[in-house]
Design a protein around this nucleic acid. Structure first.
Lengths: 216, 216
DNA sequence: GTCTATAGATTGATAGAC
DNA sequence: GTCTATCAATCTATAGAC
């Protein structure tokens, strides 16, 4: 029988180190040596426990995106169920809130989560095929559900317009997902609102006004 | 005296090859061998003509961003001058149009320009320090001017809110700057409007409604 | 200016002892 | 499971012939 405690601890240390290094330096910019040194484990440990560097990336993403997506889906289902109960269309603001709020809350929950959010913020535009593909695999069902909810909220709208606007909303979240990115180009006196809910309000106001009445 | 024709042609071929490869595979994912092979020049040519791989990246960005930024600034100045002449506040839509329109038009002007737009779309969130820094160096004056114009358009608005909203607008442009990105997660029947002006309208409608009346 | 050849450093991965 | 040692395959950059 294997030493499960040692295994679990070593794997976790590797995941933590890799997560932070991938966030700071990207996938290609991070070496197995950097990861294992930071984790305080042997160079061979990554290949022993995960198989390869690519499989390690998949594990890094999976560990965080699994729970996060379950949260987002639960909130979304709640919104849709509540709307169905009252016989009204679901509110776009509630739908977007079900996606944005868990994401930004999760980001503040733990340094590792913050690092992972940095990785996935980059992932959609990444030139690193593995990062992009692994992220898309994890996000696709969520994206489909979100889009379906938006279509339910705007039954009359041409689907291409709704899809574009939904993508604009998701893209608009990017500066809040990468705070140091937000800091770049900021005027010298800029202070991001300290309260997460305030940040969320400003983003949701922007997106929902952007979506507008939208029944033209 | 050097052979200026040969030099200019070789440099251009290297720039073209590098631009496309950086767009496809990122900076780190592109080797000098791949660049020189694609350009049909010798491996040593990059270091001879540009000094280093990093200096080549700077040259790739500079060649396109120089003219593009001049276009954007000229349009922005036009908007501000026209507003000053009539004594009215500049219209947010005109300001954003001065930034968005040259960008997306430029992207359609030439395959190389399209590749370069892909590079700069990724640059703001890039984990590759050189890409990010080189881009920021080129975009910073433009960003400052844009933000100043937005402040002129919304004189009463708290500056942190205006800055955030402006960043949301810039981020929202991302899906239109990377078309294949837009295609990912799209519903099977999705067709991006063929006309650039139509794409622009949808984006500008979204952003300007998002910015809203905004004098609270 | 262009070329070949190669230096010098790093990389992901693995074999095999413990 | 952990370790050392190492392989084979990269890479950027450059020296020096033409």
């Amino acid at each position: 029988m294997v030493n499960q405690h040692a295994t679990a601890a070593t794997k976790a240390r590797i995941l933590d180190a890799a997560e932070n290094l991938f966030a700071d330096n990207g996938f290609r910019g991070t070496t197995l040596r950097a990861i294992t040194t930071k984790a305080g484990v042997n160079l061979a440990a990554v290949n022993y426990h995960f198989g390869s560097k690519e499989d390690l990336l998949a594990a890094v993403l999976d560990r965080r995106l699994g729970p996060l997506n379950r949260q987002r889906l639960a909130k979304l289902d709640q919104v849709l169920a509540a709307a169905a109960k009252t016989g009204r269309l679901p509110a776009p603001r509630d739908i977007l809130h079900a996606f944005f709020e868990p994401t930004l809350r999760f980001r503040e929950s733990e340094p590792g989560a913050r690092a992972c959010i940095t990785i996935i913020t980059r992932a959609i535009t990444s030139a690193e095929t593995i990062v992009r593909d692994e992220f898309l695999k994890q996000i696709e069902p969520m994206g489909r559900r979100l889009l379906a909810a938006m279509q339910a909220a705007y039954p009359g709208l041409p689907s291409h317009k709704l899809y574009m606007q939904t993508r604009f909303c998701l893209a608009a979240m990017q500066p809040l997902m990468m705070e140091d990115n937000m800091a770049r180009m900021a005027p010298p006196d800029f202070k991001l609102p300290h309260e997460l809910d305030r940040q969320l309000d400003i983003l949701l106001d922007f997106c929902c006004q952007g979506l507008g009445n939208n029944h033209d």
